[in-house]
């Protein structure tokens, strides 16, 4: 890569409270071998402070929310998303959303920061989980479909009104034929599976479970690098 904007000591954190955090770490190391990227696991507020950008991985959103709260991370995370790039995959996307439907009884902790409402487990139980090729705009070699892995995946219920002022770019939708038949929310936005809002990235599927590192490249190039530019 000819890009040399990235300062040698850029640090990307992966929230490592629970879930598939190690997979993200492997993907970042794989695709950014030439860059001086440090990739660290984040379990405490002190570790979060070291990071120039953060990935919130897939996992169980209620578990991660609770652990963030009792580890004293939830408020530092809320402050963090106001200024730094964050990418949430699946459960991570739920945590980054401003509002959710189908929460745990009695509600659950969210970080917020992205003006979107998300329905948890939008497709139903595990037997409805699926893989499907996705067209994603902005990826390298965008004509080659990206392998989408949807596991008890959330559905974007709607972009909230503030989204229009926040430079929201929908970068991938799935065909109507793949939408959940018994969709809880029949809004027009429910086909969205990947979007950018400002410096944040949100995917309802799992790029970290594939061999394809283009999404990790995209995050580094489009979200992290520009935020580091002087």
């Amino acid at each position: 890569m000819k890009d040399t904007q990235l300062s040698p000591d850029a640090v990307i954190g992966i929230l490592a409270l629970q879930g598939a955090f190690a997979e993200h770490q492997v993907m970042l190391k794989k695709n950014c071998g030439k860059r001086q990227l440090d990739v660290i696991q984040v379990r405490t507020p002190e570790e979060l402070k070291l990071c120039d950008a953060l990935i919130i991985p897939g996992g169980e959103s209620t578990t991660m929310g609770l652990l963030a709260k009792i580890s004293g991370l939830i408020e530092p995370l809320r402050e963090y998303v106001k200024t730094k790039p964050v990418w949430g995959t699946c459960a991570g996307a739920i945590l980054l959303s401003q509002a959710i439907s189908n929460p745990k009884k009695g509600g659950q902790e969210l970080v917020g920061g992205v003006s979107v409402k998300i329905t948890r487990n939008g497709w139903g139980s595990q037997v409805e989980s699926f893989e499907a090729p996705l067209q994603v705009s902005g990826l390298r070699d965008a004509h080659i479909p990206f392998p989408g892995v949807f596991i008890r995946a959330p559905v974007v219920a709607e972009l909230l009104s503030a989204a229009s002022e926040l430079h929201t770019h929908v970068i991938s939708r799935i065909p109507d034929s793949l939408l959940p038949r018994s969709s809880l929310d029949e809004g027009p936005d429910r086909a969205i599976v990947a979007l950018r809002q400002g410096r944040h990235l949100l995917t309802t599927f799992h790029p970290e479970l594939t061999f394809d590192s283009r999404f990790h490249e995209y995050f580094v190039h489009e979200c992290v690098l520009p935020s580091l530019a002087p």
Binding site: Q18, A20, G58, E60, A91, Q126, V127, F130, I151, S177
Partner: peptide, 25 residues
């Protein structure tokens, strides 16, 4: 195979993938 014929359900990928989401739990 889902109706559209463009997506696969019950693949080994989504089966082992859910286990990966449970890690650290």
């Amino acid at each position: 195979v889902k109706d559209a014929g463009n997506s696969n359900m019950g693949t080994f990928g989504v089966k082992s993938g859910l286990a990966q989401m449970l890690k650290g739990g």
